[in-house]
């Protein structure tokens, strides 16, 4: 067994699903009554896009702003994506992450039965958040 893969075509059935070049990333964002509040988020998503890990990177808003999450998914599928990873850009495991976002993804999976949908962990659960907080608390 060589571990020296240059490309990976292996789809694992485990919980860990590495990003692949044929996968689209949809960043699911709450949305804000003040659209300028999304500026920092767009900068972060642009940084993700620049890494080139995904065939497509799109933002979808749960409410208040556009495109909506279903619209972002539609756009990914329209451009030929067969696998969507949707990451909640949320800090809390509240009702949106626990219930509302899964419902949106289930509806999308019914609309596009030929597309594989995976839901990522929510942002606030990532270990790197501790480092972000520490930096932002420092003076």
């Amino acid at each position: 067994m060589s571990s020296n893969h240059t490309t990976s075509s292996v789809t694992s059935q485990t919980a860990s699903q590495p990003p692949t070049p044929d996968t689209a990333l949809v960043v699911m964002v709450h949305g804000s009554p003040r659209p300028e509040s999304n500026r920092d988020m767009f900068a972060v998503v642009e940084e993700v896009r620049a890494r080139g890990l995904f065939a497509d990177v799109k933002v979808g808003f749960m409410e208040l702003n556009e495109p909506t999450i279903p619209e972002a998914i539609d756009a990914c599928v329209a451009s030929g994506t067969t696998r969507v990873i949707a990451v909640p850009y949320f800090l809390h495991a509240g009702t949106h992450v626990a219930d509302d976002l899964p419902s949106l993804l289930e509806e999308a999976a019914q609309r596009y039965p030929h597309v594989e949908f995976l839901m990522g962990d929510y942002l606030g659960h990532d270990p790197l958040i501790a480092d972000v907080i520490r930096d932002r608390a420092a003076f």
Binding site: S16, Q17, V44, V48, V87, P88, G120, H125
Partner: peptide
């Protein structure tokens, strides 16, 4: 935060 998004995607289920 960009690294965190990618890390969250790697744990997709």
């Amino acid at each position: 935060l960009a690294d965190a998004i990618i890390s969250c995607a790697q744990r997709a289920a």
